[in-house]
Design a protein around this nucleic acid. Structure first.
Length: 501
DNA sequence: GTCCCTTTGAAGCGG
DNA sequence: CCGCTTCAAAGGGAC
């Protein structure tokens, strides 16, 4: 895994890695992959997109089309999941050729492309949390360690507001340009650069993208998340800048964790007892990306459900170039670094239990849950130590298996040989039984189709039946090499005979 | 009002 | 070290 350049020596960013399957040289595969995924736009967009809101011909708007296609994929996936296997859905026109063969990889908007107005780090990445009225160049600006950085003072003691506002502190961390404003000691002042306030952060989209984010802080602005309850009004720090990592106590959250770093601090005298804050986890790269792009996707796709939006964003995330992702990884690394400096005693464990996740309960309920790789390997009689079960390679649950039988049918052993492997890459014995209308969208997720360079130590054939006739398309991934237990991936076949009507 | 969904990445924990 | 869990954001939807 390549490490980000410039991150050397920064152990905080040691875990920042670019996704392997973003390797170069994949455009051809991507294009081929997309060749059979785009024709469904016309039929599905109406069910997913309020065209009136798009307000223009989507064919002339790559952004809108990409969004529609994203949404179409989601729609198809959900539809297919709901369909009974025996039901055949007519998909006339579903696979007609597209005028956008590059989707999604070749249909990146200017936002994703280099050398554009929003491609540079200074222009794009910083707009990660403007919706909360924080620095549009970085969410880190609101971070302030003033409450714990003054000599012998308790590290979280509130500071004198009057002494902090508007004070320019030229000292900056060499690692954090401008807006990070950390002194060399690493625990210095975070001084917001005020120049950003007038910067238009979110350019209007071609489809009438509304401007959901304020471009300047206003006196009456409210900040739902970035608040510092120890001082000032909710949402405001001693500097008057909202704090990104601290949120007021919601009442339902367990605040015991917070005492570890904040309890001993004298409460500022206020008429009303301030709610204890929650120090949030620093956002990771993807979260930063989502924060920036969510509004854009919402505007383009006219979707509102975050779950669907997040799916789109997840795919777009994987469609980003290595360089584009690197920007967010780098920003996330800085965010973690600053967060650690500001809250040295904080641990992610502090927030455990706040979200009452019922995952464990769910797992207990489904005692036969085959979702874990261990269980899935056991199911197929694989060696727990050496064998992979492809779909379970996913970090979390074996969602492929959970979604239905047959999707864990092509495991391979650690030596790269498929267990009960097909005789040829196009052998469909192990093809996942196609549902009635098995579409590419079902396997278009980041965990389904590997990008170039991503190693998939399992064989999987994707059988896409496009029509009732013999128009079928096979795409096969097969391990081609074996190194350190991970098989290489190559697109062995990708062809389609598509009905033109 | 609370929780779920859905995504990726980071971190913590247990074996 | 590996696998698993939880949380981070977001907001509509379900209950």
């Amino acid at each position: 895994m390549p490490q980000l350049s410039g991150a050397g020596g920064d152990d905080l960013g040691a875990t920042d890695e670019l996704i392997s399957f973003k390797d170069e040289g994949d455009q051809e595969e991507k294009t081929r992959e997309n060749a059979f995924t785009e024709g469904d736009l016309a039929d599905l967009k109406s069910s997913l997109v309020n065209e009136s809101e798009i307000g223009q011909n989507p064919a002339a708007d790559p952004e809108a089309i990409r969004c529609v296609q994203d949404a179409a994929r989601l729609y198809q996936q959900k539809q297919a999941d709901r369909m009974d296997d025996g039901i055949k859905i007519q998909d006339s026109g579903m696979y007609r050729g597209s005028a956008y063969p590059g989707y999604p990889f070749l249909m990146l908007s200017e936002s994703y492309l280099p050398n554009t107005s929003v491609s540079s780090l200074s222009n794009k990445v910083p707009v990660v949390q403007p919706s909360h009225g924080v620095h549009p160049l970085t969410p880190l600006i609101p971070y302030s360690n003033e409450h714990f950085s003054h000599g012998s003072h308790s590290p979280h003691a509130p500071a004198d507001i009057s002494q902090k506002q508007g004070v320019h502190r030229p000292s900056q961390s060499p690692d954090m340009p401008g807006f990070y404003s950390l002194p060399a000691n690493g625990v210095g002042q975070i001084t917001p650069s005020m120049g950003w306030q007038s910067q238009p952060v979110y350019p209007l989209s071609p489809c009438g993208f509304r401007q959901p984010y304020p471009t300047a802080l206003s006196a009456g602005a409210t900040y739902s998340r970035f608040t510092h309850p120890l001082m000032l009004s909710p949402g405001m720090h001693t500097t008057g800048i909202p704090h990104p990592a601290i949120v007021p106590h919601s009442g339902k959250q367990d605040m015991d964790h917070y005492n570890r770093t904040m309890k001993q601090q004298p409460e500022p005298k206020r008429e009303k007892e301030p709610k204890k804050p929650t120090i949030k986890k620093p956002l990771n790269a993807f979260m930063l990306y989502m924060k920036e792009m969510r509004a854009k996707v919402i505007a383009e796709c006219t979707l509102k459900e975050s779950a669907a939006i997040n799916q789109i964003l997840g795919r777009r995330w994987h469609a980003l170039s290595r360089e584009e992702q690197a920007k967010y990884y780098e920003l996330a690394r800085k965010e973690r670094q600053l967060h650690m400096q500001l809250y040295p005693g904080w641990s992610a464990r502090d927030n455990y239990g706040k979200k009452k996740r019922r995952t464990r309960e769910k797992q207990q309920d489904s005692s036969s849950d085959p979702g874990s790789p261990k269980k899935c390997r056991a199911r197929f009689g694989l060696n727990q130590q050496t064998d992979w079960c492809g779909p379970c390679r996913r970090k979390k649950k074996c969602i492929r298996y959970l979604q239905g039988e047959g999707r864990c049918s092509s495991p391979v052993s650690s030596d790269g040989s498929a267990i009960d492997s097909p005789s040829s890459p196009l052998d469909t014995r192990h093809c996942i039984p196609p549902p009635s209308a098995f579409t590419h969208s079902q396997f278009a997720g980041p965990h389904d189709i590997p990008g170039p360079g991503e190693t998939h130590p399992f064989f999987v054939s994707i059988h896409i039946k496009t029509t009732t006739d013999s128009s079928e398309l096979f795409t096969s991934y097969s391990p081609t090499s074996q190194s350190s237990g991970a098989a290489g991936t190559s697109l062995l076949a990708g062809s389609a005979t598509l009905r033109g009507t």
